[in-house]
């Protein structure tokens, strides 16, 4: 299972793809079990350079019966910093946030792994 994520150009906020729009909560994101649909969405997203920066697909795992990003970095993006539990998206609480907090998958993020390298 995959989701499509990016940072929004105007404010840098973490956003997720939902039927052609960008939403702020991971819980609202489209989940792709069809790789072709996921790549098609990624292609569409990449054609929006004045809306988002660097859209990419992330892998998901099951957690508490819900889906959560597999990589730790992506869970931090979807939640907020661990040193300030009231900052970022985690502040709203709820089942999806709990599922993300309890997820224990491990993998390197496929996203902006190393901005220096990209120069």
């Amino acid at each position: 299972m995959k989701a499509l994520t990016a940072n929004r150009l105007i404010d840098g906020d973490v956003v997720f793809w939902k039927s052609g729009q960008w939403v702020e909560g991971f819980g609202d994101a489209d989940l792709f079990d069809d790789p072709e649909a996921a790549e098609a969405a990624e292609g569409q997203a990449k054609s929006q350079p004045t809306v988002v920066i660097d859209p990419y697909l992330i892998d998901l795992i099951e957690s508490d019966g819900l889906w959560a990003p597999l990589s730790y970095r992506e869970r931090i993006r979807a939640l907020g910093p661990t040193n300030h539990p009231t900052h970022g998206k985690q502040a709203v609480g709820g089942d999806v946030v709990e599922a993300l907090l309890h997820a224990d998958g491990a993998a390197r993020s496929s996203g902006r792994v190393n901005l220096i390298k990209r120069k």
Partner: peptide
């Protein structure tokens, strides 16, 4: 060059 980075959650 004006110190503005894009990080995980914001600029």
């Amino acid at each position: 060059m004006n110190g503005l980075y894009l990080q995980l959650h914001a600029y």
